[in-house]
Design a protein around this nucleic acid. Structure first.
Ligand SMILES: [Mn+2]
Ligand SMILES: [Mn+2]
Ligand SMILES: [Mn+2]
Ligand SMILES: [Mn+2]
Lengths: 219, 219
DNA sequence: CAAATTTGTTAGAATGATCTAACATATTAC
DNA sequence: GTAATATGTTAGATCATTCTAACAAATTTG
């Protein structure tokens, strides 16, 4: 069984994988705030347990076994976040750090019960999909708000970044998942986007913000 | 901050302490399923962090700081067990192992929220007191059923053992906290006790069982 | 109280996870 | 296509937690 630390490596590999499933040692090390030699040596260990494929100087890839284990940790993380928000009254900006710990609890019934109580949710409080209990995750095809055109109506469905700071920024603008936005214009100079929603007649979102907001196009 | 392992040592010391607050290395090692040299070396580490008092060949004692830290871990354990039973529908026999893990989560708000949702409970599902958020624990003066006399009426209030097997045995006899028992007789030969309660007109409890049941005397 | 037993300590080693310093390979820029 | 830069690896060390084997102190027993 993977250790606490190994689970964090698997999850990082899962989240960092490019379309070919590859992750560089430097990205891995960076994401986990460890040195490259540390990441390198851990990867060798994961390889011994058949959780990753790895050759010197090549990027790392999860094996099917590793990918499933990773997805199941992600499942625990996202179910936990959903539970904290829906059943314990936490804000979406306060749940990530706790979930980062609770995802390592070994107690299948605990998470099954959360899942039941939540009615088998398919997305977490930040709009990210929750893998099923076999580790399968559905794909959504949402687009960043930054790629939308003036005149379009869209619905905020997910985020590409869920840092506390970003979530607090969204709170301050009363932007939540489900919010419907109309794109009024786009500033060519700084790529900021002007939108209206709810009682906000006009709100300007910087490029940095708009590229982190994933939306479903309504019309 | 104490590590996961250190927290388990502190908790064991807290639970094993005799009236003078002392714990032998062998009891500590035994309780944690580690060798005596391991316990010995960990105790030296705890001493460096001012969590225990210790001299070669003498029993170990928690410092006030160590005792408080231990009590706060016990608090998290017991709040968790209560939450699992009252808010998530688990049986009292299934919560200890999960709580053993969740007690190490570092997230004050998570446990504060549990406490609130539970209405600031003072006992856990097995009748053990929950220390307050300063680590203070109230003393109860319950007596083992085995010390009671025939003719007495008592109420089951706590347990001195909370193993899954024992709890399942109690479930099978429909014995729960709060059950009122009348002591019908006591067998001199094997010290078993015959009691009646609810719809059970006559139930024989072995000495092993009756000394693990803590009761409050009603009359 | 001396012997036997139990309890506790030291020494030495292993494993997992981490680091820094030094070196090697790969990629990018000129 | 070499030089500079970025990326990756090896070596060697540290720290926490654990072990077994050997020895030492304390306690119990006859
Ligand atoms: Mn998260
Ligand atoms: Mn984590
Ligand atoms: Mn317990
Ligand atoms: Mn524990």
């Amino acid at each position: 069984m993977a250790s606490y630390t190994e689970e964090n490596y698997l999850k990082a590999l899962y989240n960092l994988a490019n379309p070919q499933g590859e992750v560089s040692i430097s990205d891995l090390a960076n994401s986990l705030n460890v040195s490259m030699p540390t990441a390198n040596s851990m990867v060798k260990g994961l390889q011994k347990s058949d959780l990753v494929l790895y050759e010197k100087y090549k990027p790392v890839t999860l094996t099917p076994k590793g990918k499933k284990e990773a997805a199941l940790v992600v499942r625990k993380h996202r179910l936990t976040e959903m539970f904290l928000v829906k059943k314990m009254g936490f804000g979406w900006e306060e749940v990530h750090e706790v979930a980062e710990q609770i995802e390592h609890i070994h107690a299948p019934k605990f998470f099954e019960r959360m899942d039941e109580m939540l009615g088998h949710p398919t997305i977490d409080p930040h709009g990210s999909p929750i893998p099923d209990n076999q580790g399968r995750m559905q794909e959504f095809s949402y687009v960043p708000l930054s790629t939308c055109k003036p005149g379009q109506s869209v619905q905020l469905t997910a985020l590409t970044n869920s840092s506390t700071e970003f979530l607090e920024f969204l709170n301050s603008r009363k932007l939540a998942l489900g919010t419907e936005l109309r794109i009024l214009s786009r500033e060519a100079y700084d790529l900021s986007v002007v939108v209206s929603y709810d009682s906000h007649a006009q709100e300007t979102l910087s490029e940095k913000v708009s590229e982190r907001l994933l939306v479903r196009i309504l019309e």
